[in-house]
Nucleic acid binder design. Sequence first.
DNA 1: GGCAGATACTTGCCGCGTCAAGGAATTGCT
DNA 2: AGCAATTCCTTGACGCGGCAAGTATCTGCC
Lengths: 156, 156
Amino acid sequence: MPSHQQPQPLDPNEEAFVRELSRVMLALPRAVDADIVREAGLPLSEYTPLMHLSEAPQQTMRMSELATACNITLSGMTRVVTRLEKHGWVERTKCAKDGRGWNATLTATGLARLQHAWPAFLVSVRHHLVDHFTGQDLAPLTAALQRVATPEGEPN
Amino acid sequence: MPSHQQPQPLDPNEEAFVRELSRVMLALPRAVDADIVREAGLPLSEYTPLMHLSEAPQQTMRMSELATACNITLSGMTRVVTRLEKHGWVERTKCAKDGRGWNATLTATGLARLQHAWPAFLVSVRHHLVDHFTGQDLAPLTAALQRVATPEGEPN
DNA sequence: GGCAGATACTTGCCGCGTCAAGGAATTGCT
DNA sequence: AGCAATTCCTTGACGCGGCAAGTATCTGCC
């Protein structure tokens, strides 16, 4: 870690890349969220946990697992799940093996809601994102993204 | 626009790409923001408009220009500039040519603050983002990002 | 000139997510 | 067994940004 006096400035290509990515990081979630809210009445903040639950064994995950999967804090996830529970899409049950923990389980209604929103989500992501990368090799790009903004000594 | 019954699912490469980018879109801004807040006491939400102002002729931009440049709404920019004004980093002046408009101008103090934060910003962006793309050709990637999530018939 | 509609900005209200602090249960040390 | 430290989750207070509505100014049309 060098003394941060005069770090190497970005070259023009790097600069352009950073600025475009900054824009995308703000614009893309809004665009996709607007689409699925309009088409399916489900915000991205609720779609994401429902999706992860649907892929989990028994459609069940611990709160902390779910928070990690969705990349938000545990306290954030508490609030999301509270909303989802009010909608009847998720149920909270005490964890048998660990009395401190709670499981979130996808209900049948919740699964139906997710499936109903899925086409709109897919169309939106294709339209706003994936379709613009046709012909590019995504593998090295994905590999690079995997290394981006991950905590220091994290063992994958 | 096809009827959105059963859209083409994402293939595994696309799927992985979308999930990694989703993570990056949440994690990267937080990581950079945390860095520059810690190193320079300036959040990203304030750094960005100061940066754009510093690059503008006369260090001055209309509120709406600035909002567009920073990719937030005009109402959001009103609040940011109000904060910046309180800090003495920006001044609001009525626009001479259009009585409805306001100009935001970077002050000397504001410029100093920006310059003070710049190294930390650069180090953070290199460390969390740019360094992970060494050896990759950024040009096609940037070009693709330019097309992502832009309103439909937008020229340019 | 004067009125209708568009444009530039501000403000009220709200959703969402963070951090800090607190409660309950578990684990580890002795 | 018993107490301290840790872990899992929730809650309170807050910041940020969006949308919708309101105000002021400008522009176009008669």
